[in-house]
Design a protein around this nucleic acid. Structure first.
Length: 454
RNA sequence: GCGGGAUUCGUAUAGUGGUUCGUAUGCCAACCUUCCAAGUUGGAGAGACCGGUUCGAUUCCGGUAUCCCGCACCA
C-alpha cells in the first residue's frame, strides 16, 4: 500500500489545480482555501453522491438550504452564544491561556451557569494557580463565532453571527416541513452548507479551516426505540464509507464517545475516524441529541413544536439522531485513500485511483501524434462526441502520448481514449485503463458503453 | 494564542552584501515522435510583505503575513 504524506498531497493539489491557499496573492488568509476546477469537480461529485444516498434514495428525507445569516436568538437558544465563546484566563508569567471552566472543574467547582466574572472571582477566592504554578491574570473569551451586523446600524440589536453549524437551520425549519408535508415519523431534514468558525489554529491543510462545508442530516424519531434508529443510521454510514466511497475498512474506525466527553443531553455519540496522513481523526459523527434542540427552540420561540401523531391523540417532541459529515475532510480522505504510486518501465508513476463517479475528469482524448492533421481532426470529432455524452471530458495534445497518460493519471482520470492511424481506417480507438494501464481497441460507441458502466 | 523552525520561477531545490539569481521538473511554441514522463531548438516564469542598516540588501536586522513542528484549543 502506498504511504501518503500530506506535503505530497498539498503539492499535487496545488500543481494540478485542485486546491489553493485562500487569498494567496496577498500572502494568504489562514484557515481559508480556494477550490480549483478539478478540486471543485471532485467536491461536487462527492456532494452529489451523498445527496443521492442520504436524501434522494430514501423516501422520507427532505432536503433544504437554510441561510447562513440567522436571527441571533437562534444562537442563544442553541447555546452557541454562551458555549462557543470559551472562557480563558492568562498565566501572567508564561502568557499561556487556559480554559477557565476547566481549571475550576479541576478544582472541584462546577462552572456551569457562572459568568466570566464569577469564574474569575472564584479563581481568586480559591487562590488557584496556573498549571505552571504562576498567578492568573484577566479572564477573556476566545470567540469562535464570526460576528457581523445586519442592516446599516452596527450595534447590539443588529448583531448576528455567521452560522457555526448547519444543524440549527434544520431545527428551525422543522415546523415548516411538518406543515408543508406532514411526514410520518421518522423522517429527516438534510442540508449541505457552509459553516464558519474562528478556529484558534486552523491546521493540517483542509482538515480544520475557518470556513468549511458540512453534509448533515437531522433524523426525527419517536424516542421509544431510538437504539434501533441509531443503529440503522450507523450501518448506513458504514455503507457510505465502504461501498459508496470505497474507503478501506482498516482506515475507518468507529469510536464510541465516552459519557464524560459527550454533550450532556446525548445518550450516545460515535465518531467515525479516518487514518489521514500522519494522524487519525474525525471524518464524520453520529449523535443522539434527544429532544434538546426542539425543546430549546420551543421554549425560546414560544411556538409549539410538538408533533401530533396521525390517528391518535398523542403529541410529542420528536427526538433527533444526527449524522454529520465534514465535506472537506471527505475530500481529504478520498485523496488519501486513492493516492497511489507504482512503477512503469522502472519509472515512478503517481496516480489517483479514484472511482469513476468521483473522478474530476471522466475521460481524456488525444491524437496519437500532434503533427498529423488527419489524426488531430478525427480525435477532435471523437472528443466532441464524448464530451457531449459524458460531460467531464478533457482534450490533450501536448508532448507525447506517455506524458499525457501520466498527466491524466495524476488527476485521477479513469480512462484515456487515443486516436491512431488505424482509427482513420476502421473507426476504432484505444481505451486505456488508468489502474491497469491496459488498452483495448473498440468503437466510440463501445467506449460510451464502457464509460456508462462505471 | 505560546515556543521553535521556515518562506527563492507552478513544483522541488542551489547559491550570493555588488554584472543578467543557477539547476531539475512542469508549462508554452516549433520540429521530431506510429502507445506509456524519449530527443532537439526557442520561450515565459522567482527571493512573501513593510521598514531599517548600507554607497548598494534576495542575502544582515526588526516587524507583519503565511506555512511546518510541538503545546494548547477544537470535534
Amino acid at each position: 500500500m502506498t504511504k501518503v504524506n500530506l506535503e505530497d498531497l498539498v503539492s499535487l493539489c496545488k500543481r494540478r489545480g485542485f486546491i489553493y491557499q485562500g487569498s494567496e496573492l496577498y500572502g494568504g488568509l489562514s484557515g481559508t482555501w480556494d477550490w480549483g476546477p478539478l478540486g471543485l469537480s471532485l467536491k461536487r461529485n462527492l456532494t452529489n453522491l451523498w445527496w443521492q444516498k442520504f436524501v434522494e434514495e430514501p423516501d422520507n428525507m427532505y432536503g433544504i438550504e437554510s441561510s447562513i445569516l440567522m436571527n441571533a436568538k437562534i444562537w442563544q437558544a442553541s447555546g452557541h452564544e454562551s458555549t462557543f465563546h470559551d472562557p480563558v484566563i492568562e498565566d501572567v508569567k508564561t502568557k499561556q491561556h487556559y480554559r477557565l471552566d476547566h481549571l475550576l472543574a479541576d478544582n472541584k467547582v462546577d462552572p456551569k451557569g457562572m459568568s466570566l466574572e464569577d469564574m474569575a472571582n472564584k479563581i481568586k477566592e480559591l487562590k488557584i494557580k496556573s498549571p505552571d504554578g504562576n498567578e492568573l491574570g484577566n479572564p477573556s473569551r476566545a470567540g469562535q463565532m464570526f460576528k457581523t451586523n445586519v442592516g446599516s446600524v452596527e450595534d447590539e440589536s443588529s448583531l448576528t453571527y455567521l452560522r457555526p453549524e448547519t444543524a440549527q437551520g434544520m431545527f428551525v425549519n422543522f415546523r415548516n416541513i411538518v406543515d408543508s408535508y406532514y411526514p410520518d415519523i421518522p423522517f429527516g431534514i438534510a442540508q449541505v452548507g457552509r459553516n464558519f468558525r474562528n478556529e484558534i489554529s486552523p491546521r493540517d491543510f483542509i482538515f480544520r479551516s475557518r470556513e468549511f462545508e458540512i453534509m448533515e442530516l437531522e433524523y426525527f424519531i419517536d424516542p421509544s426505540n431510538w437504539e434501533a434508529d441509531f443503529d440503522n443510521l450507523r450501518l448506513k454510514m458504514r455503507e457510505w464509507f465502504e461501498k459508496t466511497l470505497g474507503l478501506s475498512k482498516e482506515n475507518i474506525k468507529e469510536v464510541e464517545i465516552d459519557k464524560s466527553d459527550r454533550a450532556h443531553y446525548s445518550d450516545r455519540t460515535i465518531d467515525f475516524n479516518y487514518k489521514f496522513p500522519g494522524r487519525e481523526d474525525e471524518l464524520a459523527g453520529l449523535a443522539y441529541r434527544s429532544d434538546f434542540d426542539l425543546s430549546n427552540h420551543q421554549k425560546h420561540s414560544g411556538k409549539n413544536l410538538e408533533y401530533a401523531e396521525k390517528g391518535s391523540n398523542r403529541k410529542f417532541l420528536p427526538h433527533v439522531i444526527e449524522p454529520t459529515f465534514g465535506l472537506e475532510r471527505h475530500v481529504l480522505a478520498v485523496l488519501t485513500e486513492y493516492y497511489k504510486e507504482d512503477e512503469i518501465n522502472g519509472e515512478k508513476r503517481t496516480y489517483l485511483a479514484l472511482p469513476a463517479n468521483l473522478a474530476p475528469v471522466k475521460v481524456a482524448v488525444f491524437p496519437l501524434l500532434k503533427n498529423k492533421p488527419e489524426l488531430v481532426k478525427y480525435a477532435h470529432d471523437v472528443y466532441g462526441t464524448l464530451k457531449q455524452k459524458v460531460g467531464l471530458a478533457m482534450w490533450d495534445d501536448n508532448g507525447n502520448i506517455g506524458k499525457r497518460y501520466r498527466r491524466q493519471d495524476e488527476i485521477g482520470t479513469p480512462y484515456c481514449v487515443t486516436v491512431d492511424f488505424q482509427s482513420l481506417e476502421d473507426k476504432t480507438v484505444t481505451l486505456r485503463n488508468r489502474d491497469t494501464t491496459e488498452q483495448k481497441r473498440m468503437t466510440v460507441n463501445e467506449v460510451l458503453a464502457e464509460l456508462g458502466k462505471s
